[in-house]
Design a protein around this nucleic acid. Structure first.
Lengths: 165, 165
DNA sequence: CAACGTTTGCAACATTATAACAATTGTCGC
DNA sequence: GCGACAATTGTTATAATGTTGCAAACGTTG
């Protein structure tokens, strides 16, 4: 049985969230950035969800908590979180997900399950190197890399194969 | 001096477009798919532009030609073209660009210049392999891969360095 | 506390994409 | 050609996502 990275299931997720928030507070303190209440709450909501969250999902969630925010509030919080590498934007989903390597210089690869919607962020030196080489070949200087892989995660694949989804 | 792939500049672009259209007609015939007037025109517009074109850009263009189309018309044409691999969608730009490897099985890597907006599509076996390996490590079965690299193209970099944009 | 920069609230708007249904067009057998 | 059927396009409305601009609140600093 795999000792592989499996955010795919049973763990004390609240602990993950707490850790992420603690890390975020630390990172912000280091940068003299203010992790205000809204910003922290948005980050928490994103982390609590196992799937990437759309800006309007976040908005709705805040709504149910009595905080009647408007779109710019959420987008601004997201911009802030993106800026400090605390969340990632998944272009192909127009959604946001917690960064599992906050603070570390890294180039994320996202495995997005089209069935369960879960996203696994991983780091891959070989992929990063291959991309870098390819870009160099064209004398192109990379800035931001979006690498999103849609497919079936192990769990869903197992379900699909046996037909017992 | 580079014999590198340089759609970056001076070539008879109309010839590219014609070739792309001819290829498209061929591919559609092979698949018994109808490359109707609108579909062909949309494809042509996309190819004529050196930069990825948004759906509403296309719409506007059609408008100036007297063809007063509504969004669904364009989106449907785009869906068709995507389906047969004649165009690509660039998620990070919400825009579409002609596929330079139509008909060939390939996994595109897009180099997007943030200055001039040009996009170069390239194929890279090493990158494809590295991604495949990374996915396998997580027992993930890839389906669709989005790899978009934003940065500075050689020409713009040269301009930026000398300040003579 | 006054002055300043940052953050948030708020209203309007812009952009991108889809749904639902009617009208038209193309194809195929007759 | 004609009727029937499928595929395509037209049309209207609406959904989903993201931004602008300005005013109010907050926080810090002298």
């Amino acid at each position: 049985m795999p000792e592989r990275a499996l955010p795919y299931r049973p763990h004390n997720h609240q602990a993950c969230v707490s850790q992420a928030l603690a890390d975020a507070r630390h990172i912000c303190r280091e940068h003299n950035a203010r992790l205000t209440a809204i910003r922290e709450r948005v980050l928490e909501l994103i982390w609590q969800s196992h799937k990437p969250l759309g800006a309007y999902d976040i908005l709705a969630q805040l709504g149910t908590e009595g905080h009647n925010a408007a779109p710019p509030t959420v987008y601004r919080a997201l911009d802030f979180l993106l800026q400090y590498g605390l969340v990632h934007r998944i272009s192909s989903l127009n959604a946001f997900t917690g960064c599992t390597h906050a603070g570390q210089k890294h180039q994320g690869v996202f495995l997005i399950c089209r069935q369960c919607g879960n996203v696994l962020e991983l780091e891959s030196e070989p992929v990063a190197r291959a991309i870098d080489t390819a870009a160099k070949t064209e004398d192109f200087r990379p800035d931001e890399i979006t690498l999103e892989i849609t497919g079936l995660c192990p769990r869903c694949r197992a379900g699909a194969e046996t037909g017992t989804d």
